[in-house]
Amino acid sequence: MLDFTEASLKKVLTRYNVALEKAMTPEDAAEELYPKDKLIYPIAKAIFEGEEDDVIDGLQAAMDAGKNPIALIDDALMVGMGVVTRLYDEGVIFLPNVMMSADAMLNGIEFCKENSETAPVNKGTIVCHVAEGDVHDIGKNIVTALLRANGYNVVDLGRDVPVDEVIAAVVANKPIMLTGTALMTTTMYAFKEVNDKLVEKGIKIPFACGGGAVNQDFVSQYALGVYGEEAADAPKIADAIVAGTGDITALREKFHKH
């Protein structure tokens, strides 16, 4: 069978991921970012490691020491999640780590809420859905996890969501942004209907769309559309809105890459 020599192989391909790999391990990188407070540190570390039981144990210990449960959401859980999302954005850790950390964080938030009578504050509400006629929802599930990981309240409408149900959810929840994902060319057409009905009602929130067959050219055809090439763009678009970039043209300028 034909084969390369080491030298000839280098003329055919470059494994850029191996060549560019950072020297620091994910655990070392995270260690540098954890808060130093001895009650908060184990919670943040448990979030990074995705260890749900350790998160609860850490929260209980912090509460026993007098920490306010609701304050712990921002001061411990979100801080730990911040380490995770930062290292994901920097390419140090991969998506499954984020998903497992998000599971642990959501468990922790529920635990904090159960131990308090006041409600936590979040960065804003976002309504997420998969287009009518489309049942492929893994992309939407990644988007909702990343948004929650970044401190947003997510109203998850699920998959195959009728256009009118999307509109009703937007009216009821007054989100800062709507997201839509689709795999098929024929189902993504529903995004245009959602857009038209929102515009008809005078609602002008950014409508971030992405997934399988969805592309920037298609999303640019309707007034509220902002194209997200990757699931990780969703929290970045939301952060830009929270920071004051609510204008669709400005968002497109920032996030449309092609």
């Binding site: 991921n17 994901y88 390419g91 850790i93 991969f94 998506l95 893994i138």
Partner: peptide
């Protein structure tokens, strides 16, 4: 194929 697409290219960070 879902796994292959999530894994993506050499520089993607979504799945080993």
């Amino acid at each position: 194929n879902t796994a292959m697409f999530i894994a993506g290219g050499l520089l993607d960070k979504n799945l080993a």
